[in-house]
Design a protein around this nucleic acid. Structure first.
Lengths: 206, 206, 206, 206
DNA sequence: AATGAATGAGAATTCATTCAT
DNA sequence: GATGAATGAATTCTCATTCAT
């Protein structure tokens, strides 16, 4: 069984990692506002004061936690994007991995979808930049697919946005638990490939 | 001049509306934890104490604000979904309206996607129910389209999820401002109709 | 009986005054480090939070308290310095008032002599400036006395320093309680007037 | 080169001395409350834990530091007081040395005059006792001078207080840097000898 | 109804002190 | 002896909520 790149989030022996792991669980469970530093410390198995040896304050713990979380996730996806196979195969691989990660880290959801904590300007900018970079990577892959003829001739930039949006399906986790992951993934990929309409059509809208 | 159903969110003269409008701006800008009741009062142009004449407490302000926001948004979309035209045309109309609303309410996305505030069980359940209901409506429309032959024979439930996910494109608002709304919308709809791949293909994944 | 200008320190009805009065008592009794904000609040008869409506933080309470205390004291002394009578008489009046104030405000001592709290740069500069100003006023009075022939021809600036140093006698309050105020004042004034030596002498030192 | 008794305060190679020297600088600069044990350790060039090998706690560091500082200073002055020469000459010698010490140890004044740290009963009593003893020594010298006719017939106890107060001139160090030490000392001594008034006068006050 | 000064429960943060290395 | 990472008791400070006006 392969060791999933993100399954052992903050599993290192360092106090810093222990704190981030505790913060992850606490924030996911209670939301930012309802998480006490003391709770994080308890979950991390360290003293309250220790947190302040490694982080500025509560907001800083949150910020660094989110940053590492997103960074690892996107890095993992990027690994697939620049892997082997045709652009289409790589795009599907990204999808597959994304879903797998979310499946194993239900908490991750809460963070994406629920309470990204204080709308810290720094964090917001960082997130924006990360998204931008990832979308750029998607764009290049799509351009390549267009060149090889695997993809239709679409606006690569907009298509990258579209693919990124599809990754947002994460949000729906808690919405429909009655649809199995397998089915869901299969349909998504089918739609991504072939679209919803039975007849090709690009009549102007409205 | 048509009066857009959701464009004038809380534009009424009532204090309650003023408070919700202030809360909307404050929560979107600072996040739940960093928003002070006092700030909401200032933005609303009322006294701090007044808020407690209309709401139970801070969480209640947040809850009602989100509920009304989502309710109006989804009601508007539902109006299009049950309007005139073929299932496909109605689906596109929903898309179009969704984008238009987000265009006018840039803050809105923060609330949809990220900062749903405190881990309030009640609100979370309500949101889940709303999404479920809306997805069910999408599902029925897609089933109808499949029956009429307009759509391909796909798993309607999963396809509904997929469409809902696409609405999440809202997130990208702040990410890529260099892509015009028109272009983006056109490409999205094209992809939704026809998919990204040039050759129809439904080989099993992996 | 005349109402002493500094006897009713912070006797106003305002919360701010009440807090400063409480702070005065608390700091004098326990020293800066051992004074809790809560204690000040209790002595002031207000809630803990109220203090933060009027002051930045503990250090700010201390700073403003000292400033007002010194300001009133020096203003009172200055009143005598610019009053009626010959320069010599005015100088003696300053002395007399200074001693009287210290006699009535034993706490004041503790503050002067014991724990002037955090060596806050701002406060230190302010104190220095106050002393400087007061010494300048003393200097002018001494110059006037030299002109009128009441005083000997000395370096007025240095003499002003000397007089100011004598006011520091305050410190000795707690040292020798066995010497009565009357005797002490009489001797001090005598020495200030006539010096300690029986024979005039200005042989070079060393 | 003469080894000035107090000039090389805590200059020994022992850790204990290094700590006291660091504490001296830290307390003088930041005040008791704002001085962290860690800062003292840094200034002393030792580890934080080392301090607890030589001292009970923070208060103990402060107490011992002040005690040694004052003890050395007063011992040095006492040496002059019981030296050679007439009582008047010895008094002037004390003055001279006092000024010299302050000149080399500008921080010193903060400790003498202001920030005697926490309202530690033990330290306060010790300081009172030290002052009392020194003033008694001054008193004896003055009595001797009165007997020999060098000094005028004044209340020796009050005169001793007066002289001690004059030593408080230390305070003025930071106030007036534009007056040279030489001029200042000369004027002070002149005033101490001859008084400020040109005509002997001991009319009762008030 | 409307207000905002006042409050204090509750959370964040600090830092003297300990103790394993 | 020396150290400094770790700790949690003790304090500062915040801010939702109340209530007299």
């Amino acid at each position: 069984m392969d060791h999933h790149p993100t399954s052992g989030l903050w599993s290192g022996p360092s106090k810093r990692d222990a704190i981030l792991a505790g913060a992850y669980r606490a924030f996911a469970r209670y939301g930012y506002a309802n998480t006490k530093i003391e709770t994080i410390a308890e979950l991390a198995g360290v003293g309250k004061g220790t947190i302040y040896l490694y982080f500025e304050n509560k907001e800083d713990v949150f910020r660094q936690m989110v940053k590492e979380l997103i960074e690892r996730h996107l890095d993992a996806l990027r690994g697939r994007l620049s892997g082997d196979g045709s652009p289409g195969a790589r795009l599907l691989a990204v999808f597959e991995l994304h879903m797998a990660i979310l499946k194993r880290h239900p908490y991750s959801f809460s963070l994406h979808g629920r309470d990204v904590g204080p709308a810290d300007e720094d964090l917001r900018n960082w997130l924006r930049e990360q998204k931008r970079r990832f979308i750029r990577d998607l764009e290049r892959t799509i351009e390549e697919g267009i060149r090889t003829g695997e993809f239709r001739r679409v606006n690569a930039r907009s298509a990258a946005l579209w693919v990124f949006a599809l990754l947002g399906i994460a949000f729906l986790e808690e919405v429909l638990q009655d649809v199995g992951w397998e089915d869901r993934l299969k349909t998504f990929i089918d739609l991504m490939r072939n679209g919803l309409w039975s007849q090709p059509n690009d009549t102007a809208l409205v």
